[in-house]
Computed example of a mutant assay.
Amino acid sequence: MKKFELGRLMCTVILGTSFLTGSAYAEENLSEFVLDGINVTALGYEKSNLDTPVDTVVYTGEQLKETGAGDVANALKYKGGVYFTNMGPHDQNWITGSSQINLRGIDGGTLVLINGVPASFNNVNHLDMLNLDEVERVEIVKGGGAVLYGSEALGGVVNIITKDQMKNSLRVAAGNKGQRDYAATIGMGKASLALGRNEFGSTGNMTERLGTRKINGTDVPYYIGFGDSKKDHLAFNYKFDDRFKFSYMFNKKKYTTNYNDVNENILQHFMYDDREYFAQIAYNDENGWDAKIYYNQRRIENPDYYVVNPTNVEWEKSDHKQYGLDTKKVWRSDKATGLIGISAKRETYKNDNQ
């Protein structure tokens, strides 16, 4: 009898407390909670997030798609401790084209990896060009990762794990201002393919008057405006067996920015064309061996000219290449886990100006 009365009393108190604090509880439920997962980024081998001695979080591709974004950068900007900087519609940036992700506000200290190998160019990354259709999950390690990954990881590491297999899907969407989105994923047994294009139309003048430009001897007031922009992506994976996998990814971003007069007529035209290529062969077995050979390339063209004299072109071209090998061996026992590995990378950079 006493047990029954005590149980009923406790139940009453709990219900009463829930009723009185219902409003606060509803507000707390608006916060985001990510359940424990497994990551390979923080320590170089699989480890539970709760057992990892650094601030680590894992987001699946589906969780990132729930933000409404179509690319990695615009999905991560809604996550705590992740900062995304860009200017203009469709992630256009004035001249440089460098839409940046950084962790904990540390510029130049965020290393981006794709399937565990470096994918940043001179500490610049364009995750706004990486479509979520290709992403299995994203692992984020906040805080210094220089011990494993070098000085580029001073603020943290973002590791994008791509899908081994894709389901058949087709997406077509349209909106105002020339917005278009076309994408398809195709699963073909051992092979998978994803491709698509995302477009945005011209927006006209986006600023107040910034000054004057001398056109045919006359000082003409000018404003900055953004023209058409396009993002293209293609990803191909082939899984030979449980140990060997080949992956290739191509991303392209092309857009224009202009100096316009008050009527949005173009005075000076700037074009930005950024193409990035990522290829790797990966080996992984049940004995703890993990090895990757990779090749990355980034090519940029940035011509501009005055409309009154379009034959006089000023341009910049750059070509950045990376070749690398990353291999490691993990030993596990009941008492400890050990890791030994070698990482080698060669970079070349060529820049031409006229």
Rank of each mutant, 00 (worst) to 15 (best):
F226E: 08
K245H: 06
L234S: 02
K254D: 12
E199G: 07
T212H: 07
T203V: 12
F226M: 09
F246N: 00
T218F: 08
Y223K: 08
Y238H: 01
K239N: 12
N216H: 11
G227I: 13
K231G: 05
F236T: 03
D219K: 10
L234F: 08
G201Q: 05
T218G: 05
L234H: 00
D241S: 06
Y238K: 00
K214L: 14
V220C: 14
M206Y: 11
T207E: 10
D242S: 14
N205W: 01
F250P: 00
G227D: 03
K230M: 12
D219E: 15
M206I: 12
T207P: 09
D241G: 05
I215E: 04
L234E: 01
K239H: 07
D232C: 05
T212K: 11
T212G: 08
F200A: 12
S202M: 10
R209W: 06
G204M: 12
Y248H: 05
V220A: 11
L234R: 03
F200P: 02
G225Y: 08
Y238G: 00
G217M: 05
R213T: 13
D242R: 06
K214E: 13
F226P: 04
G204W: 04
G211C: 08
D241C: 04
F236C: 02
Y238Q: 00
S229Q: 09
K231L: 04
S202Y: 14
G201D: 03
G225Q: 09
P221N: 06
P221Q: 05
S202V: 12
P221I: 08
I224L: 14
E199L: 11
I215T: 05
Y255P: 01
K245S: 10
Y238V: 01
N205C: 07
G201S: 03
F246A: 00
S247R: 03
D242I: 08
T212N: 15
G211L: 08
K245W: 01
K230S: 14
G211P: 07
E208R: 12
Y248G: 09
N237R: 00
I215K: 04
S229C: 09
T207K: 09
K239A: 13
K252F: 01
K245E: 07
Y222N: 14
L210H: 04
G204I: 14
A235T: 03
N216G: 05
N251A: 05
E199A: 13
M206L: 15
F250N: 02
Y248W: 11
K253D: 13
M206K: 12
M249Q: 06
L210Y: 04
N205I: 13
